[in-house]
Design a protein around this nucleic acid. Sequence first.
DNA 1: ATGTTCTATGAAACTTTGTTCACTGTCAAG
DNA 2: CTTGACAGTGAACAAAGTTTCATAGAACAT
Lengths: 219, 219
Amino acid sequence: MEQMTKKQKAILDYMKAHVSEHSYWPSIRDIQAKFRFASTNAVFGHLQALERKGVLQRIPGAARAYKIVPEAVADLSETVIRYEGPDDSAIELRSIPFAGSIAAGLPDYTESSGVLASMQAPISEGSRRRAPQSFALRVRGDSMIDANINDGDTVIIEPGTAKHGDIVAALIDGETTLKRLIKQGSKIYLKAENQNYPELFPVSELVIQGIAKSVVRPL
Amino acid sequence: MEQMTKKQKAILDYMKAHVSEHSYWPSIRDIQAKFRFASTNAVFGHLQALERKGVLQRIPGAARAYKIVPEAVADLSETVIRYEGPDDSAIELRSIPFAGSIAAGLPDYTESSGVLASMQAPISEGSRRRAPQSFALRVRGDSMIDANINDGDTVIIEPGTAKHGDIVAALIDGETTLKRLIKQGSKIYLKAENQNYPELFPVSELVIQGIAKSVVRPL
DNA sequence: ATGTTCTATGAAACTTTGTTCACTGTCAAG
DNA sequence: CTTGACAGTGAACAAAGTTTCATAGAACAT
């Protein structure tokens, strides 16, 4: 995994902050001004590097049009806080990327840098295996309303092999949707838990992004 | 309050959807293509109208640079989803503004780009009065940890007169904090529900922003 | 009838912005 | 010493994108 340089990270952070504050991306010249570059090409080079490293996607020719790949950012700058207890116990807090988007605007990238949800299970000294790459997803729509997952809830997704009955985040028509996975013999269905929706949603090609592990919801 | 026309709302929705999907705003020409306008000026006019009505902010000259004003959108198109039960019962889901973090003091409405759904209690047919102006706050810090409200949780606040035992969002030294309200005779205290904090926090001047009605938290 | 507002066309002007090219300096590895 | 990767300057270009102007039909109230 190729690391980001300090300046690249700074530029990425500035872009995030700009989006968070203004709700739209900065132009190359905005970045140039911020970092006092004498040439736009300096910025251009860094953006190319960021794209090559996979943390940033650009749309060629389009203005102020970017997309941050949270997984890549997390890989390149993972935050792990470790508390050592008096005895052999320890607690790890691991930052997980926030992949969801909010209703009126852009993904709130300010949250992705902080600790949204944390793994708090005490770990034994020996079994310090790498935690799965979880991420959080804000739920849109009411497809899982009967499973008590409502629009606006946030779901913690973890990758892994899904089994029958799991609620999964699946890619359908380029959209990430939350459905329950139903396996009937060799057939696989996705079931929306909403009486108003078709009961079973047959799928041929299935891209499962992860399994919903927990929900954040109003009480 | 001037309403949005159907087309204006459609355009706004498309812009939102575009942002949600691509993480950057559509250009005027993108919108033109989407709605099959023959002229960019048709879009331009609608955007002007949306800005005049206060739901959209534009940065003149800048490309793909917009900002949605959630309060205005909420005012102009308050979302109330109403489920009618078989008997006289009914449940209303009402969109409420998301006021951001509680940490930095006053609610940061710039961050308020999200909408959380609030479940109203089942309402009887006759008493369909307008819901109070609720808002959501993100909790920072651990002052209410013993009340099971943790850092990162989101609390739904509703204005109103607080009574003994209520958890309130109160303004102390310019900062919004979450505390339990204790009335002892004529004296009023604010109590942080954390063993490490002073038990009772006497206050003379008290600005209560609202009463915590519900919490959003990881399960 | 008449003016006004809203919505739209069509073309053009103009600004912003991404992109490219040629060139320079630095720093570390071979 | 040389090579190559990296970071940057400075100028120029072309595409993308916003804005303006002139015009016109439909809906609607006066």
